[in-house]
Design a protein around this nucleic acid. Structure first.
Lengths: 244, 244
DNA sequence: AGACGATTAATTGTTTGACATTTAACTACC
DNA sequence: GGTAGTTAAATGTCAAACAATTAATCGTCT
C-alpha cells in the first residue's frame, strides 16, 4: 500500500484533512502553485491530486481571480449517483448471483415498509398511482416499463420520509433493477407485476405494513422464478457471470 | 453540466465505455500517448482524466514495458470502503438529524434478521461472543468499545450470508456509528448495551428473528434517548449541525 | 544448445516553462 | 459617481524533456 504515486499520496493527505474536519465545507485550498511548493512537487502533480479529489466530489474548482479549489458539500443527490454507479459496476463485475442481488434488494426495501406505512402522504400515493397507470398502458415500451418500475419503488422508499434510507436504497434499487430487467425482459408478465404493485400501493394507502411485506415477498419470489426460467432456457449459463 | 473541463469529459467517455461493457475487466486502455492523440489533447490532460478514473477504482496502472492502464475489477471490499467514507462525509456535511440517521441504521439492520436467523453459522456466533466478551471488560477504552460495537453489528449482518447486503450495510453501520459514539460517548451505559447485545446474540443463536427485531428496536430507542439527553445537556444545539 | 546477463524498447511518473482563459477587483476617465 | 478598460491572480492546457520501471530481446559464455 505504501507504493502509491505522489498524486495519490497528496490526494490522500488532503482527503484526510477534509474528513477529519481540518478543512470545512467551502474552505479554500491553497492555490496549485502554493500546494506544489508545500508538498515539494510540480504543479501537474498537484493537479493530478486535485483531479482525484474532484472525481470523488470532495472539491470543486473555480477559475479566475478569486478562484481555486474549495471543499464541496457532498449532496445526497450526488452521493446517490455515486452509489448507483458503484453498485452497478460491483454487480456486473463480480458475477453476483441473481438470487443474491434480488434477495438483498427486497430485504432492504421491506426495511422501509413500517416507516412508510406510518408516514406516507397523499403525494407519495399519487406518485405511485401515476406509475401504476403508466405500467398498465400496453403501448409502453419495455425500457419505459423498467423506468416506471424503478420510479414506483423509489416512491415507496421515499414515503418512509428518511433521506438516509432513500440514499441507501437508491443503490440497491437502481443498481439491481437493470440487471433484473436484462434477465427477465422477455419473460415478464406485466399483468402479474402490475397486480402486485397495486397490492403494495393499496396496502400503503391503508397503512398496512404487514401486507406490504407480504406483497413485496411475493414479488421477490415471482422475480426469482422468472429469472430461473430464463436462465434454464438459456442453458446452464450462471446469471451475470462475466469476466476473469 | 456541459461546461466541464477536458479531463472530466475524457474521463466520462472512458467511464461510459467501462460501464457499458465496451471495456471489460482487465482490458488494457491505449497508452497515454495514444489516448492523447485520439482525443486531440496533450498527455497531461489525459493523465488527469486517468487519475480521475483511478480515484474511483475503475482502473489501475502499471509501469514498464507491458504497462498501461487496465480496467479494474471493483471488489466488494473497495466498494465498502468507498461507501463508508462517502456516507460518513454525507452525514457530517449535511447536518443530518441524529434520530434520522439512527432510524435508518436500525431499519436496515433489522432487514437482515430473518436471513441471519436462517443462515447464521457457529462461526458468526463465535465472532459475536468474542465481541461481547470484549465489551464486558471494564478496562476497555471508549474507542475500543466503539470499534467492538461496530464489529458486533457487522458480524450480525454478515451472518445473513449475502455479500450485497453486507456491502450495503457497511455504509449504514460504519458511517453512523462514529456520529453516534461522538454524541453519546460519555452518557452511555455499557451494562445496558451489553445486555441488549447479549439478547440479540442469544436470539440469533436460537434463530429467533422476531426477538432479534425486538432487541434491536429496544437498542434503537435507548440510543435515541441517550442522544436526546446529551443534546439537552449541551443546550439546544441541534445534533450534528455544522457547516453552511 | 542452453542459461544467464546486458541491452533495448515501451510505458508511466515527474518536472519545467510557457501560454491561454476566466474572473474579480482596481483604476482612470468622463 | 458610474462605466469602461486594465490588471492581477488563478485555473486550464500544451509542449518537450528526463527519470524510473518493466518485460522482452539479443548476445555471449559455458
Amino acid at each position: 500500500m505504501t507504493e502509491q504515486d505522489l498524486s495519490a499520496r497528496i490526494a490522500g493527505e488532503i482527503r484526510d484533512a477534509i474528513v477529519s474536519g481540518a478543512l470545512i465545507v467551502d474552505a479554500r485550498l491553497p492555490s496549485e502553485a502554493e500546494l506544489a511548493e508545500q508538498f515539494g512537487v510540480s504543479r501537474p502533480t498537484v493537479r493530478e491530486a486535485l483531479k482525484r479529489l474532484a472525481a470523488q466530489n470532495l472539491i470543486r474548482t473555480r477559475r479566475g481571480a478569486t478562484g481555486g479549489a474549495f471543499v464541496r458539500r457532498l449532496s445526497f443527490e450526488e452521493a446517490q449517483d455515486q452509489q448507483v454507479t458503484t453498485a452497478t459496476l460491483l454487480l456486473s463485475m463480480n458475477a453476483v448471483d441473481f438470487d443474491t442481488a434480488c434477495e438483498a434488494r427486497f430485504a432492504l426495501e421491506r426495511a422501509c415498509t413500517a416507516l412508510a406505512a406510518a408516514r406516507r402522504t397523499p403525494g407519495h400515493l399519487a406518485r405511485m398511482d401515476r406509475e401504476l397507470a403508466r405500467q398498465g398502458d400496453p403501448a409502453l415500451s419495455d425500457e419505459a416499463f423498467c423506468a416506471s418500475d424503478v420510479a414506483f419503488h423509489r416512491a415507496l422508499v421515499d414515503s418512509a420520509a428518511n433521506p438516509v434510507l432513500s440514499y441507501q436504497l437508491a443503490g440497491a434499487i437502481e443498481a439491481i433493477e437493470p440487471l433484473m430487467n436484462m434477465i427477465i425482459f422477455t419473460a415478464r408478465d406485466r399483468a402479474r407485476i402490475l397486480d402486485l404493485h397495486g397490492a403494495i400501493a393499496a396496502a400503503l394507502a391503508r397503512r398496512d405494513a404487514a401486507a406490504m411485506d407480504g406483497a413485496l415477498s411475493t414479488l421477490e419470489r415471482y422475480t426469482c422464478e422468472l429469472a430461473a426460467t430464463v436462465m434454464a432456457r438459456r442453458g446452464a449459463a450462471p446469471s451475470a457471470a462475466r469476466g476473469r
